[in-house]
Amino acid sequence: MAELQFREALRAAMVEEMRRDESVFIMGEEVAEYDGAYKVTQGMLEEFGFKRVIDTPISELGFSGIGVGAAMNGLRPIVEFMTFNFAVVGIDQIINNAAKLRYMSGGQIKIPIVFRGPNASAGQLGATHSVAFEALYGHVPGLKVVYPSEPGDAKGLLKTSIRDDNPVIFLESEQMYGLKGDVPDDDDYTIPFGVAKIKREGSDVTIVAHGKMYHVAQQAAKELAKDGIEAEIIDPRTIKPFDMKTVIESVKKTNRCVIVDETHPFCGIASEVGFQLQRDAFDYLDAPVQRVTVPDVPAPFAKNLFDLWLPGPKQVIEAVNAVTYRS
């Protein structure tokens, strides 16, 4: 076990997998000579050389597709997007090719590729640089979607993603790269997809929160505890597949649920989880499920508006108050 930053945990996962398997390589903007826009790939060029750590032009459509083609032909590419906001330029390759070629070829084609990089907002970067994409990718059959919240999970899940034979969307956050946490050293430390983790136990309310919002949920839970409310926090860790079983088990105990989600409300992660809860755990709910999301509008620049836009512990506490009828 070592204490690593999130970015170091990601790097450890990639380095270990690249040592283990010659067919794994990484490409993306500024990943090699610049050591990564956010220093995730720092030092990797040194170890693996120019053949396996590749700087690309700003051609997201091109290198996403080159990655898919290379994966079809036996390699295991890791494609780094400077952020997932720029992956939108290459999204045709992800949605139409990566996600569907296996299906359309009747199972002949295999596409073991990882698309990874920062997701969602990172301060006042304006509307085009602040979108949380997990709901959008989660919508597409053929893709697996991962969004870890802590360094240990990040390492284990990235190793699983690289070893997985399907296209995987692996979401990170600029704002979490410096976050420290315990990370197992084990070369074979992988975490299976679709297994949520109960990260805080409690009996009064279930809070489901992933990625950056997991930390918001933790802050809220601390505040709530001062008021005698014990929240159980579940981090699904992977968006697709999504571990509803763990959520439902928890709700059977707490009878109340708040979902914290950085995507927009309409067709978001919270909509899906909320639907499944009412379908599969209706009898256990003592209050309507509540959600905390960014509003149904793009990210504003101005600091005051941005702070209103991005959910914080306050909104989570309000939602918990609503499901516990304390407001």
């Binding site: 006042q124 304006g126 509307a127 504003p300 620049f301 101005a302 005051n304």
Partner: peptide, 15 residues
């Protein structure tokens, strides 16, 4: 990021 900005504070430096 002020309301008196060229994009009413909605865009910032890049917009």
């Amino acid at each position: 990021g002020k309301a008196t900005g060229i994009s009413n504070g909605k865009g910032g430096s890049m917009h």
